[in-house]
Design a protein around this nucleic acid. Structure first.
Lengths: 183, 183
DNA sequence: AGCTTAAAGCAAATATGTTGCTTCAAGCGC
DNA sequence: GCGCTTGAAGCAACATATTTGCTTTAAGCT
């Protein structure tokens, strides 16, 4: 049982904070468990016992950073909302730091729950956009369709073929999606 | 420079073979560089110097295993060729071993070249299918479209939401794709 | 055949990961 | 509030893995 209020929670916070600080100071490549432990004022065995290894720890921290901080902007129509969201998503995720977090989140994740969380964040954001569109009496696709047609292609290219990704690609996907809603 | 014909090549082959054997014998979790080195009859430092770490070595081996072994089946039409290929792809890649190779390939891949190779394999297979369809005078989408509409959604779900993936999903994607070719 | 050089071997030094046992303090019953 | 109970943290000794400087091997050239 993780005791939320006490020492465990403080250790957790200290370790996460140490990871972020050291990532910024020495770079992700140079991170090691003993280094993080020292910075967090904790013994290495604590980290090994709680997280297993560096990858799982980095995965936890990465997922936190991938959580969207704000609701998607309201641009007045489904199409423009999706475009704005997709452009921002693509820009953040295809940048070197975004890709690094994404990889970390996927990698150190034996049971897939962190990956699932990433997808859930995207689904939530899309849900907000679709609800808003439905409120405007627009015809909307369902969330799964948007995942397939918009999120999945962006992710695929970020992970497998990162060259030459830009906002034009995001717009093209949105165009293809909203152009085929009613069938 | 990698000298292709001589000792380096033998070492490379021995190490790759050792990884495969040990993966089968003791499981992926139990692999370590010293273990692989011993089996391959090589010193650990050779592996560290050539591959950097275990992840990069596993990434190399994983990409080899993800290379398609046969050309896609010819089922007589674009739609059925795509369905057959997508079903097989999804089955292989969403199985635990397939997911493990995929993760390994992505993981130990600092410069993205192994991930790019995976995508290139898929693109080659699709190219064969599309060429064949063009030879039958069928209207065909281009490769990029098939990557976006078929490969990307499958990969996204394999990596981020592996639950409940089946051949029905592959068929649904193909249906959506071939239903919208001519616009 | 002899030279040049990238890569492999070896071994010592260092760093990382593991484990059993001890100590600490949060949460709970009184 | 006081003192149990228990899960988590600390410590330290140990086992493994990783790095590194130097030596040796053998592929590819002329």
């Amino acid at each position: 049982m993780v005791r939320p209020g006490g020492r465990s929670a403080r250790v957790q916070a200290a370790v996460h904070a140490a990871v972020r600080e050291l990532e910024a100071e020495v770079g992700r490549e140079a991170l090691t468990v003993p280094l993080v432990a020292t910075r967090a004022g904790v013994t290495p065995s604590t980290i090994y016992r709680r997280w297993g290894d560096l990858q799982e720890l980095l995965s936890d921290v990465a997922v936190e950073r991938l959580r969207p901080e704000t609701a998607p902007q309201d641009k007045g129509s489904l199409r423009s909302d999706l475009e704005a969201w997709a452009e921002q998503f693509l820009e953040e995720m295809s940048a070197p730091t975004g890709r690094a977090y994404l990889r970390d989140a996927l990698l150190g994740d034996p049971d897939g729950s962190n990956a699932g969380q990433c997808s859930a964040y995207a689904a939530e954001q899309i849900d907000v956009i679709l609800d808003r569109a439905a409120g405007r009496e627009e015809t909307t696709p369902d969330v799964e369709t948007v995942l397939d047609r918009l999120v999945a292609p962006m992710m695929y290219r970020i992970l497998f073929r990162p060259e030459g990704l830009g906002t034009a690609y995001a717009r093209q996907l949105v165009a293809g999606l909203v152009g085929t809603i009613d069938r």
